[in-house]
């Protein structure tokens, strides 16, 4: 996928700004596939400028108050509404409990973009190299979806189906993302490698539950390596089964670099990506296990 539009102007569309969730859902129901929702507009407007999307109706969610809140409840976790911006979230104290998400949110693009862009928007763009999905998957987050017909919850891992493809039917709206309370003795981090690039060439989120000197559970999720975030199962197993996990970190990185799907694109070759997976695995495990 290449970005860069010859156009200065957007395709024509009708703009709606509902004031309640009900009104938003009714508009979505009415216009179905012809409608797109907008929060910060960072992704949508860029897609429209590229003519990759040309919705006849744009439904701006910023007028719906209940979508603009991030709420943390001890023991339950963190719920982030659809119009909560990355900077609002970054400033929300309890986010620190969710290390990987905290890392990812604070380092996306630049402060100006983070003032507009939302977490839910970042997730729903489902561009392969966006930062928050690997962190959300490593933390076991779920997407809350509403429509006039009802509501459902989908794990983020299943919500992203392909590049720019999500599990969302016409008429449905992602109202929030829910991140469960971190497990005891767990620690999570997200790091990315983006030297000489705006986007990550490779990113990784790790969520580890330590038990004495051993790793009881671990989730390793890689972003920007392929069309969807990649979960490294074999690498995680190797780490869990090691009696001395500190001795096998490079081995874990090697396994991960071989088992996940990785592609060549304009940012990096597959070969280099696999090498970076190995290196970033070392780095992220050093962070979460240290």
């Amino acid at each position: 996928m290449s970005f860069g539009s010859p156009w200065f102007t957007l395709p024509e569309f009708t703009y709606h700004k509902p004031k309640t969730l009900k009104e938003a859902l009714e508009l979505l129901d009415k216009y179905g596939e012809e409608a797109k929702v907008m929060a910060g507009g960072v992704g949508l407007l860029a897609f429209m400028k590229e003519r990759l999307m040309a919705p006849s109706h744009v439904i701006d969610l910023k007028g719906v108050p209940e979508l603009g809140q991030a709420i943390y409840k001890e023991g339950e976790g963190l719920t982030i509404g659809a119009t909560v911006t990355l900077n609002e979230l970054a400033r929300y104290g309890p986010l620190k409990k969710f290390g990987a998400l905290h890392d990812a949110v604070r380092d996306i693009a630049d402060p100006i973009i983070r003032n507009r862009a939302t977490l839910v928007g970042n997730l729903c763009e489902a561009i392969p190299w966006v930062d928050t999905p690997p962190a959300l998957i490593a933390l076991g987050a779920e997407v809350e979806i509403r429509s006039l017909k009802g509501e459902r919850r989908v794990p983020v891992k299943d919500f992203i189906k392909g590049p720019v493809e999500i599990d969302l039917e016409p008429g449905e709206l992602v109202t929030a993302v829910h991140v469960p309370e971190p497990r005891r003795n767990s620690r999570s981090r997200f790091i990315k490698y983006n030297t000489g690039s705006e986007f990550a060439l490779v990113s990784v989120a790790a969520n580890v539950v330590m038990d004495g000197g051993r790793v009881r559970d671990v989730s390793l999720v890689y972003g920007a390596v392929s069309s969807t975030p990649q979960v490294a199962v074999k690498a995680a197993d190797a780490l869990k089964s090691a009696e001395k996990p500190w001795e096998v970190l490079d081995e874990v990185g090697r396994i991960a670099s071989e088992e996940v799907e990785a592609v060549s694109d304009v940012l990096a070759s597959e070969e280099y990506r696999r090498h970076l997976i190995r290196v970033l695995t070392l780095r992220v495990l050093r962070e979460v296990m240290g």
Binding site: S2, F3, G4, S197, E198, F199, V266, L267
Partner: peptide
């Protein structure tokens, strides 16, 4: 074709 005609890539 130019693959990176923008300042993100």
């Amino acid at each position: 074709w130019v693959l990176n005609p923008n300042f993100t890539s």
